[in-house]
């Protein structure tokens, strides 16, 4: 397992946070996700045989938010 913190821009409220947590959290290989509106980021624990930081950032972008690989 790996963990990553991705920058997420474009969220304005709790429902944005929830929709990202639900959709990304339900992807196979995503173990845990916590999204912060204040910090504009998503902390994700994932199975690295399923995902890379790039694939996770793309999944968030695909939902219509901007995602930046910062770390």
């Amino acid at each position: 397992l790996s963990s990553i913190s991705l920058g997420v821009n474009g969220m304005t409220c709790g429902s944005c946070v929830q929709s990202i947590e639900q959709r990304i959290g339900s992807l196979p290989g995503v173990i845990h996700i916590q999204v912060s509106l204040e910090l504009k980021n998503a902390s994700i624990i994932y199975d690295n045989s399923h995902h890379t930081p790039q694939s996770l950032a793309e999944a968030i972008e695909d939902m219509g938010f901007d995602s930046i690989i910062s770390d």
Partner: peptide, 17 residues
């Protein structure tokens, strides 16, 4: 949609399509 964040997301997915 409940806020500008939602409509912004809709705008971006449609523009991408």
């Amino acid at each position: 949609m409940t806020c500008e964040g939602c409509s912004g997301a809709v705008t971006r997915v449609l523009n991408k399509l």
